[in-house]
Structure formats: C-alpha cells, structure tokens
Amino acid sequence: MTRFLLRLVFLLALPLVLLGLWWLASDDSTNPFWPPLRTILTTFPDVWTAERLRADVLPSILRLSAGYAVAAVVGVAVGTVIGSYRRVRALCEPVLEFLRAIPPPVLIPVIMLFAGIDDTMKITVIASGCVWPILLNTVEGVRAVDPVMAETARSYGITGAARLRNVVLRSASPQIFAGLRQALSIAIILMVISEMFAASNGLGFTIVQFQRGFAIPDMWTGILVLGLLGFVLSVVFQLVERRVLGWYHGLRASARRSP
C-alpha cells in the first residue's frame, strides 16, 4: 500500500508543483501574452464546446488518422519489398536518403499546387511526411531477419505469403513499431501545420484564428488541447504496442535476466 502511495506521490508531485507555480506566477499578470492560469482554465469550457469539438477537433483527428493509415500501409508494403531484395535496396537507397531528408513541411507549397487546399491536400501532406520513418524502419526490420530463423522456415517449407506473414513481418514488427511511433509525432506536426497554412476548420486553423484575433486566453486553451491530444495519442499508441509486442517485451526481459 505504501509503495502504491509513494508511486502516486512521485507521479503527481512535480506536475502539481509546476501547475501551482504557473498559477501563482501568472495570477496578477497584466501581460497580454501570459494571462493568468485561472483565466485560461475558466475560458476552456467556453471555447471548447461540444459544437466546436465536432466542428474542429473531429475533422483534424479524421485527417490525421487517414494520413497516418495511408502512410502505414504504403510504408510497410514498399518497405517490405525493398527490404526483401538486396538489389532493389541498393537501387533505391540514394534516392530514398535524399527524399527522406527533405523537411516535410517544405513540401506543402508543392502539394498545394497539385491538391488545392481541401482535405486531400492535408491528408497527402500528413502521409508524405510520416511515411518515411515507417518505410525505413520496415526495410531495416525485414532485412535483419535472423538467419537461423530464416533457415528454419526454409527447412520446413514455409515460403511465400506464409513466410511473409508468419516469419518476416512478425520478426520485423518491433522495428516497424518504432517507425510507427516516430511517424505519429510527425503526423501531428503536419496536421497542425497544414491547417495553419490553408484550411477552413480544424485545430491548427482555430488556434491561428485566435492568435490573429488576439484572443490570447483562447489561444492558450488551444495549445493545451493540442498538448492533450499529443499526450492521449501517445498513451493509446503505447497501449496498442504493449498488446501487439507483448512477446517482444517478454523476450527482452528474459534475455536481460539470464544473458
């Protein structure tokens, strides 16, 4: 019981202290850029009504999911092909290294040429940016299948699609998930930026509107919402990963115990 309480204390202590300091430091602030924390918190429910959540937050999340899903499918599919054949990999490597080094937001003006300013543009921007970590990590994961495991599969006649499904992709999944996690943070960044650039609704759009209209406390609530979104998505991702990669965590734990 005491251990549980102690963990709870550690969990909440610093955040509460920081929040308290923020509250006190900003309480009688007259600086327009740093409104009192109290004001921000009271403005919160006024700004983020159910109506706004539906009209702005929901479209953002949908675009994010669509872009992320496209990137995941394309990244894993292409990455598997490239990783499976040495020649293909050598062929593609310089081009991929260059393409992936381009900071994704820089492509927004180009994508806007092709896709205008509607949802397709935003989904394309998100997908084009977060496909890289997924693709490259899939290539690495597929390439690094343990040779003993590969020979075992071959000796039992496990080839083709069955081999891909049961051996290669499963063996590469820890690496692929690392790529998926990186892609998630990039996806959020691109979602916000693409909406700041050209949109008629969405989180990024809303926050910029507040800033332009000098509705500072509202802007701060928007920042808080973005922060919450990032945090929630990260937690959800970790939960999914723990389920899918349960075997991997178990394997590593047992390896650490008895090297």
Binding site: F10, L11, L12, A13, L14, P15, L18, F33, S185, I188, I189, V192, I193, M196, G204, I207, V208, F210, Q211, I216, M219, G222, I223, L226, G227, G230, F231, L233, S234
Partner: peptide
C-alpha cells in the same frame, strides 16, 4: 522518479503548438 510523469506528458506535445505563441 519525480520528473518521469512530467516528462512523459510534455514530450509528446507538438512544438508547432507553440507557433502562435512564438509569433506573439
């Protein structure tokens, strides 16, 4: 141990959220 929860919360916050603040 004391900072773990704070770090885990602040880390995933996208830096682009601070763009409007930076502009101001």
């Amino acid at each position: 141990e004391a900072t773990a929860s704070t770090i885990e919360f602040l880390r995933p916050i996208p830096s682009v959220a601070l763009i409007p603040l930076a502009v101001l």
